[in-house]
Design a protein around this nucleic acid. Structure first.
Ligand SMILES: [Mn+2]
Ligand SMILES: [Mn+2]
Ligand SMILES: [Zn+2]
Ligand SMILES: [Zn+2]
Lengths: 152, 152
DNA sequence: TGGCAAATGAAAACCGTTTTCACTACTGAA
DNA sequence: TTCAGTAGTGAAAACGGTTTTCATTTGCCA
């Protein structure tokens, strides 16, 4: 990994070089060890409880913005008003199966949309640049739990 | 169409019967003749400019909520903070190709996700109940316009 | 070490949406 | 027809995540 501190070093890849600021570094640390998706506020809370002098919420937002732009982090939209973030393999992205009951999510290994880009291009003459895709439902556990107790 | 006034009539289909209120009727009228997606505020503005005594914004929101629940209207999420709405064939839904330049959108005729539900079920034991999917990029016109003038 | 641009954070602004609550219009029973 | 209970409505306030503002701090560099 060639991401470095703000002391002059920049990441080699990406559309534009990233200067990893102090705040962004801490944000990334939180995401690095977090399995689930985290909102900006989640991250802020986490930092507050473990850093002697935690970055402010504003800095968390700014850090996320640059990390996303840089391709190290992806923003995920569940359609509730709160964006969530998670680390991704640099430049990659993926989607989720989100359980509406327990809120746990399965990280899908392949993107359904990417493999359709050419056909969309061909059929609609539309140049695909991005997309959002998240699938909601019930995970196996919650299906069973539901079957055990009352329905619905 | 069996949707009727609130004077005792209800829609035959749908998970629950809808009593179409005065406000909801006006909202539906706007959506009926609108090709593009409309936000709640768009609808409110439209009504203000044409109704003698237009429903308040609150009523527009409430109407949309029941129309969506009823399956006559779908809510579309572009990931900017503003939900948009459009009429759909009762109980159906679809997704879009949204041009980032001119904001025009192509209404897709088939849902990529629905046809994958069984395989998701099988592979992940996940019961799909809903999803969001929107594709962003450049429509043919804007691609050409861009090619003509400077890039990007 | 002084100068400057970048980074930071507290507070305020933003903005779509939801809630509250008082009022009005309707419905259905008497 | 009356009237009371119920559903609908809307103005205003609250909400909540995010962005902006702007004054202050940090730290790189000459
Ligand atoms: Mn993920
Ligand atoms: Mn559409
Ligand atoms: Zn994808
Ligand atoms: Zn679909």
């Amino acid at each position: 990994m060639s991401v470095q501190s703000s002391h002059g070093h920049t990441h080699a890849k990406g559309p534009q070089s990233l200067r990893l600021t102090k705040g962004a570094k801490k944000v990334l640390e939180v995401l690095e060890r977090t399995e689930e998706l985290s909102s900006a506020q989640d991250i802020h809370v986490a930092l507050r409880s473990e850093e002697e002098s935690p970055p402010g919420l504003t800095t968390v937002y700014r850090s996320l913005e640059s990390l996303v732009q840089f391709g190290l982090v992806q923003a995920v939209d569940f359609g509730d008003g709160e964006r969530r973030y998670e680390m991704v393999k640099p430049g990659e992205h993926h989607h989720h199966l989100v359980c509406e009951k327990c809120r746990d999510s399965v990280h899908l290994d392949q993107c359904l949309v990417q493999q359709l880009e050419e056909s969309i291009q061909a059929k609609y003459k539309f140049e695909v640049r991005g997309h959002i895709l998240e699938i909601f439902g019930l995970c196996e556990n919650c299906q069973n739990a539901m079957a055990a107790t009352g329905k619905k």
